[in-house]
Each structure stands twice: as C-alpha cells, then as structure tokens.
Amino acid sequence: MNISKKMQDAFNAQIAAEMWSSNLYLQMSCWFRKEGWKGFSSWMYKQAEEERQHAMDMAQFVLHRGGEVLLTSIDAVKTSWTDAKEVFIETLAHERKVTDLINKLADVADEEKDRASQNFIAKYIDEQVEEEKNVQDILDSFSHLESHAIAHIDSKLEQAR
C-alpha cells in the first residue's frame, strides 16, 4: 500500500464529512426551492454536487494509492430554516468548519511525510479560501440590502409627514 493506514483513515473521515456537507447543501437547496427561492436553490444544489465530487475525488485518490475506502453512515442534517440569511450564516459557519477539517487532513499528511497527499490536499486548502469568501460576499449583500430597505422605509416615512 502506498498510503499509510493513518492517512487512509483521515481521508475516509474526510470523505464522510464531504458527503455530510453534500447532504446539508442538498437539503438547503430543497428548502430554498420549497420557499420559492429558485436562484438560492440552484446555487446550493451546485454546492451539494461540488461536495459530492470532492468525496468521489478523495475516494479515487485513496484507491489509486492502494488504500481502502470505507464508507460509513452519515448523520441526518437540519431540514428547515427561518429565512435565507440564516441559511447563509450557517453555510459560512459550516465552510469554516470544513476549512478546519481540511487543515487537519493536511496536518496528517505533514506528520506522515506523505508528499502525494500534501499535493492533493493543497487544492482543497486553496478552494476553502474561495468558498468562505463567496459565502461572506453573499452575507455582505444581505447586509447591504437590509440597510437599503431601512433607508427606503425611512425616506417614505419622512415624506408621509
């Protein structure tokens, strides 16, 4: 086997985490669709597919290195939210958690002196920077729109005097 047991186990744990993330984003997509938010639903569906693809890529990597992929059960995800902003607040928190998990996976690769795993994981480290930025940009848009709506209401009330 070209991959250590410790590295294999770390990848298997990350594969499960990626599948859980995929389920979470798919559930968010379905919730958005039910609530009539087609754009948000589409965005989350793409996120779900991306997370599933990460799991598949990691599984292939482990297999190509002579390791064994062991799929485990995946816990249920939350199924409803109060509004769209709450979904994205939870998404940012989740992406930060994923960043931590990827960093821990990289730590194992460093400990094992596994250059192939280090190189493979590097793209996920870079991707997490982009993922967190994208979700933060969406949340920033919510904040700007809320301020705009408040200013609009204030202006209308001033005119009503």
Rank of each mutant, 00 (worst) to 15 (best):
N23C: 13
A116I: 01
A84V: 10
F120Q: 06
S147G: 15
V98L: 01
L71Y: 15
M7L: 11
S22R: 12
L105P: 08
E131P: 01
H152T: 15
E90P: 00
D154I: 11
S29K: 06
F61I: 02
K123P: 02
E132R: 09
D154R: 06
D83C: 09
N12C: 12
K5Q: 10
A122G: 10
K34G: 14
Y45M: 14
D137C: 04
D9R: 01
D83H: 13
E95A: 05
R52S: 15
F11M: 09
S143E: 15
V87S: 12
A84K: 01
Q60K: 11
K97H: 01
V87Y: 02
K6L: 01
A106M: 05
A48H: 02
Q27E: 10
K38D: 12
I74W: 11
T79G: 02
L24Q: 01
M19S: 11
Q8Y: 14
S4Q: 05
M28N: 10
A151L: 08
I102W: 06
L92R: 12
E35K: 15
I15F: 03
T72Q: 06
I74V: 12
L70G: 07
L101K: 00
V129R: 07
Y45H: 14
N103T: 02
S147N: 15
I89Q: 11
D154F: 09
A10V: 05
E90F: 03
E146N: 13
S22N: 13
N103G: 01
V129W: 14
A160W: 01
E130A: 07
V129F: 08
W43M: 15
D107A: 05
Q8L: 08
S117N: 10
T82P: 06
S143N: 10
L145T: 04
D140R: 05
F61M: 08
W43S: 11
D83Y: 07
F120R: 13
M1V: 04
K156G: 03
F11I: 11
A55G: 14
E111C: 08
E127L: 03
F32W: 08
A122C: 10
N2T: 04
E49Y: 00
K133T: 09
E50R: 00
A109L: 06
K78E: 00
F11S: 08
A122T: 09
L26Q: 10
L157F: 10
L63K: 06
C30V: 15
A16Y: 05
S73N: 05
H64K: 10
K113Q: 13
K104Q: 12
A10Q: 03
S73R: 02
H148Q: 06
D154C: 05
S147D: 14
R115T: 08
F40G: 14
A55Q: 13
A48D: 14
D107R: 01
F11P: 11
L92C: 04
L92F: 02
D126P: 00
Q47V: 00
Q128K: 09
I102Q: 03
A17L: 13
N103I: 12
I125W: 06
T82W: 03
Q159L: 13
A151Y: 15
K104N: 13
S143M: 11
E90K: 03
F61S: 00
S73P: 00
K123Y: 03
N12L: 07
A93L: 15
A13N: 14
S147I: 13
L101Q: 04
D100L: 04
E158M: 08
